[in-house]
Amino acid sequence: MIEVRNLTKRYGPIPAVDDVSFSVETASTGNIIGFLGPNGAGKSTTIRILTCYLPATSGSASVAGYDVFTQSLHVRRNIGYLPESAPLYPEMRAREYLNFRGKLHGMTRHDRESAIRRVTERCWLGEFIDRPIGQLSKGMRQRVGLADALLHDPKVLFLDEPTIGLDPTQIRETRQLIRDLGQRHVIFLSSHILPEVEATCTHTIVIANGRVLASGSPTELRDRIGAGSRLIAEIKGKSDEVRGAISGIAEVSRVEIEPVGPWNRLTIEANGSGDVREEVFRVTAARGWTLREMRREVASLEDFFIKITAEQRAARAK
């Protein structure tokens, strides 16, 4: 559905997207693709190229079977796009705007009317459909933008940071909506929030500094992150003894200990993808110590990027 080969985009001498290649095939990747990366990673630039807004410096890309450079109008007929800021004309009413957009897509009057009814319901626009866009809240404007992207029932939907600037309820609703839409459309969404991608996507492509760092299902991704996760535990007992016992567990690579009154706060790191929670419990129980907390601290996205970039650097050094 989306095919990207050696795509590079430079703004002046600085590459925003640097030799990026990936491929999205519904059969292997599922319908909802998360494009994950920190701010400035090249996510928006890539999406702008795929939606035919920006030309690439070099490389090629195709969406829905059409080349984005040579068959741009065909691509544009088959995609819906919600840019990050959800830009709209403030003086128009939502219904007028959707009608205008429907006309640009060559829809007949009858098609436009039924499509507007459909997206109004889908995106919970309700009575806001007849309000001037300038009076709508950020969340509501986001929905109008999404309704626009859905209007002509496109094969592929590009959503650039679709939940940014929304309140928690709206974020949850939007994620649910994206999951629902994934049954009909291929969705390519960008985000810098790891849990968001984990919660909604069937496949993830990680990008940083304009390069693809990793891709795979969220489970594969979590395993890679899990390798860097830490275990936090609080155990009552003598610090030295506790440290000795926990360090003795085979897979534990590092233990930090911090006494809090009679308690010890432990930060435990394990080798590989090893899960040492069970062992920690056994050791504690065997010595008759009390365990009052044990949780896994999933590495933040930042840690993840640091880890992957470090891996890359190490690989290059070899």
């Binding site: 807004y53 995609i79 800021s85 830009p87 640009l104």
Partner: peptide, 14 residues
């Protein structure tokens, strides 16, 4: 300025 050029130029218009 508003960014609406992005939605306009990604619709099928030349």
């Amino acid at each position: 300025r508003n960014g609406t050029i992005e939605t306009l130029m990604t619709a099928p218009v030349t």
